[in-house]
Amino acid sequence: MSALQLQTLCSTFAVFRADEVRDHGFKLASGLAVLDDALAGGVALGTLVEWGVPLGRGGRHIILKYLAAANRGLALKADYPILWAYPDSALGLNPPAWQALGINLRHIAFARTNTPMHDLKAALLDPYYRLVVFDMPLGLSRDDYAFLARQARTLQKIIFILHNQLLTDARGNAFAKLRFNCTRSQFDPAKIIVTPVRGLPPQPLVLQLEGML
């Protein structure tokens, strides 16, 4: 790990050193060494993370790694229930594929809604769902992001926002501690390139994923 990365990490997670964090289990690791090392062990509880993951480009494999890790209690030291909100459109879920990718269907509830902030407010106000994913949410406002960041912080949740397009610096989000873009490598389809937009230095991280289509 470079000195710059270490400095960035220390400023982001000032309370614990990386090894302390791992030992105390305050972070959720994906199991992908490159990404976890860059994040000094994983995504800290209480964090709002924005991902630019266009559907069909392989980016959700990384998100599912986090979900599978949460199911296994990896780093968090307990299995936590997950809430996944997705838009009410012609697209439906294919749960066997989720299970095949390591998701324990017992610990994940899905919400099909176009107004997640309204429909799921009670779940966001309750500590039960520790990992909440908003997949392709429509029209989240600045106030919504502020609310999500506050709920993540106060209830020690991890909230992922998955956008169906790549994130840009032009439209920033001060409430998200971490922002990433994920795309499939043009040269090796088995590799995903994660480019930090906020929270880490902008050097792309190349992740090798097995079994990805």
């Binding site: 229930p81 809430l83 879920l93 294919n94 749960p95 066997p96 299970q99 269907l105 994940i108 509830a109 899905f110 919400a111 099909r112 809604t113 309204h118 429909d119 799921l120 009670a122 779940a123 309750d126 039960y128 769902y129």
Partner: peptide, 29 residues
């Protein structure tokens, strides 16, 4: 109890799935 409490408080019903042994994608859960 916590899952039921949240179900009772939400405006929409949450979906939970289980897998069945079927080869057709739309019937496999």
């Amino acid at each position: 109890a916590a899952a039921m409490r949240i179900d009772n408080r939400l405006q929409i019903a949450l979906e939970r799935y289980q897998v069945t042994s079927d080869w057709v994608a739309e019937g496999a859960f």
